[in-house]
């Protein structure tokens, strides 16, 4: 009983998260300006991170946690570098 509840609700949560990532992709493609796309990329990263945590619960394994942490770190660094690029036109001055 509880296993079925968990399996279905986690599947639903993952589908919802996938939809959220699809909306982020829409904004990334639609733009209209570069800062909108970077913002969408940041939201997409967060969605991917949460998706991996949900996947970890579903599989029942802690391995995905590390992947989620790495995605979070990379998303942060990537967004900061892109914001810096938008501001100055170059990343390393």
């Amino acid at each position: 009983m509880s296993a079925a509840i968990l399996a279905w609700s986690l599947l639903a949560a993952q589908i919802i998260m996938g939809l959220a990532m699809a909306f982020a992709v829409y904004r990334m493609i639609a733009g209209p300006r570069a800062q909108d796309r970077v913002l969408a990329l940041d939201a997409f990263y967060v969605g991917a991170m949460l998706m991996l945590i949900l996947f970890g619960i579903r599989i029942g394994s802690a391995v995905y946690f590390e992947a989620a942490l790495v995605i979070g770190v990379l998303g942060f660094v990537g967004t900061v570098a892109l914001a810096k690029f938008l501001m100055r036109g170059e990343v390393i001055e």
């Binding site: 009983m1 509880s2 296993a3 509840i5 968990l6 399996a7 609700s9 986690l10 639903a12 949560a13 993952q14 919802i16 998260m17 939809l19 959220a20 990532m21 909306f23 982020a24 904004r27 939201a43 967060v46 969605g47 949460l50 949900l54 619960i57 579903r58 599989i59 029942g60």
Partner: peptide, 30 residues
């Protein structure tokens, strides 16, 4: 997959609610 047959019901319901609430909020944000 989840093979925990003795996973308590209250915890399963709570985990489900939390997971779906979290992903719904993320979806609303996007």
């Amino acid at each position: 997959m989840i093979e925990a047959a003795d996973f308590p019901l209250w915890a399963a319901v709570l985990v489900s609610i939390l997971a779906i609430a979290g992903s719904l909020l993320t979806l609303l944000g996007c």
